[in-house]
Design a protein around this nucleic acid. Structure first.
Lengths: 140, 140
DNA sequence: GCTTGACCTGGAGTACACTCCAGGTGCGAT
DNA sequence: ATCGCACCTGGAGTGTACTCCAGGTCAAGC
């Protein structure tokens, strides 16, 4: 079974060594084995778990929830339904987040388009009877 | 021109009154007019600007960048190209964020699927010659 | 044996974006 | 006139997730 030093794990997971230590301290990383001298040795299992942690973290799951998930995992097989529920809820949250992001992105693109138009006609002050269309407002 | 009290603006924008005051303090909200008694009066322009702020904030733009954008807006029409660039960069960042989110969501769904399978066959220990397929790892 | 660089610990510090508080004021309604 | 609520200010406090530090240890290479 392959073993990894903290530096290697940092490299592979993108978490800093300090973050790895922090995760261990708060219990997000459990019983990491050590050398006789006290140095951490990570296994492929740890890498796998950290992969999931990264995934959940990057999708906005708060650490408290990841901790809860970790505890469920440690608590044995009969927590599988609870774990599933947690993940499914999170999946739904991610789905919503993506939708919201896309909606807001549309607004940003509208704004960009609006700027492109302004730029093109260099604020045509001679336009007759300016109806002060739709909106500036948004750019003060 | 319609006017709004702090409470009304909070209601319409979803920002708390404290947040509105905070935004004014740091310069994200500029020269909000006041009554003779010192109370804030918001205009439709302010609402429009706050709409953009919400949009940028919700898509993850740090306050420092929004401040920069606000300053460009105040600096006059010749900053339009700079504003455009800022928005375009942000749009690209949002695009990337969405893509990343979708990729991670796929992994979460795989994990969910993996759990559903485990659940279904209740860890079939009698399976012949388990090749220890792909991965647990990820659930410790 | 000694150097050197990666690693260790406990605890303090940081960045970001608010959020809360105490003590005081403005103003519409009774 | 006075009540009461929304609002004001400056400043301190909060939550989240790290990140940094001092002072010490381990172990591979010369």
């Amino acid at each position: 079974m392959t073993q990894y030093s903290p530096a290697q794990v940092a490299e592979k997971t993108g978490f800093s060594i300090d973050t790895l230590r922090y995760y261990e301290r708060i219990g997000l990383l459990h019983h990491v084995t050590r050398t006789t001298g006290g140095r951490r040795i990570f296994t492929d299992d740890d890498l796998g778990w950290l992969g999931l942690v990264r995934c959940l973290r990057d999708t906005g799951m708060p650490i408290a929830d990841m901790l809860r998930f970790a505890e469920l995992c440690r608590a044995g097989d009969d927590t599988v339904p609870a774990r599933l529920e947690l993940l499914e809820q999170h999946d739904a949250a991610v789905q919503e987040k993506i939708a919201h992001l896309r909606a807001q992105q549309r607004r940003i693109r509208d704004k960009i388009q609006w700027y492109r138009n302004t730029e093109g006609c260099q604020v045509d002050r001679s336009a007759p009877a300016d109806r002060s269309d739709s909106a500036e407002a948004v750019s003060r």
